[in-house]
């Protein structure tokens, strides 16, 4: 198993506010990892730096040995916490857009998943419900053949039945060579599919452990441990 993502002493400051406070982390390939922390703990800041949308104040990030940039964007499939797609486009136009944009995009897979959900490719994005829009975004991201998938709050806006859909989509498209990082605060819904979790608090990593170790050591679910660690 090789190291896919490596952070060394990663710091991000916004003015005099410290969002990430010297993070050291390495993630191997072939894992489903939960990035868990309360609101404002630094999850999205971290994710944006991995995707090259923010640059670190100090320290470094490498993905397969490269700093975030054109080369890493070919290998990283990113689901942002809010939609960035043009709402006047139809589902088919967006698929074509993605096919042009990413060498590793598999349109057949995306269409198969849309038809499973009864989303006609001719529908314009703005005519879809919020939940369906989020599912379209997830399908687009999971239809790439990436090395690293980063999903920022993939289940926040959808109903419990749709959460099951999201979870089975992640399992179904899981590839043993790739790593999936899921950021969320809805732990109970997602903890069963995780290999390991990273707890992040006030810009620091307070815990990185496999979920079965947590259950063994503490005799409680990840959700319960989270509530304990982040008690206020």
């Amino acid at each position: 198993m090789s190291v896919l993502l490596k952070c060394e002493n990663l710091v991000k400051q916004y003015g005099n506010l410290t969002a990430l406070n010297g993070i050291n982390l390495s993630l191997e390939s072939g894992k489903i990892v939960g990035l868990l922390g309360p609101n404002g703990s630094g999850k999205t800041t971290f994710i944006k730096m991995v995707n090259g949308l923010l640059s670190p104040t100090a320290g470094s990030i490498t993905i397969n040995g490269n700093h975030p940039g054109t080369e890493t964007k070919k290998q990283v499939a990113y689901l942002p916490d809010n939609s960035y797609l043009n709402s006047w486009m139809s589902v088919r136009q967006i698929v074509e857009f993605f096919t042009d944009f990413y060498d590793d995009f598999r349109p057949d897979l995306a269409y198969a998943m849309f038809s499973q959900l009864d989303i006609p490719p001719e529908r314009k994005l703005k005519t879809l419900s919020k939940g369906n829009k989020e599912k379209v975004c997830l399908i687009l991201v999971m239809s790439r053949n990436a090395k690293l998938y980063i999903l920022d709050e993939p289940i926040a806006g959808v109903d419990p039945a749709a959460r099951d859909y999201v979870i089975s989509t992640i399992i179904n498209n899981y590839n043993p060579d790739a790593t999936v990082v899921i950021s969320t605060h809805l732990i109970a819904d997602i903890e069963q599919i995780l290999d390991e979790v990273i707890f992040i608090k006030n810009g620091n990593i307070v815990l990185k452990q496999t979920v079965d170790e947590i259950r063994e050591e503490h005799g409680k679910s990840v959700d319960e441990l989270f509530r304990e660690v982040f008690k206020w």
Partner: peptide, 11 residues
């Protein structure tokens, strides 16, 4: 099995 149990395939 992972899908039917809703758990991680590695597990």
């Amino acid at each position: 099995v992972a899908l039917s149990a809703g758990v991680n395939p590695n597990t």
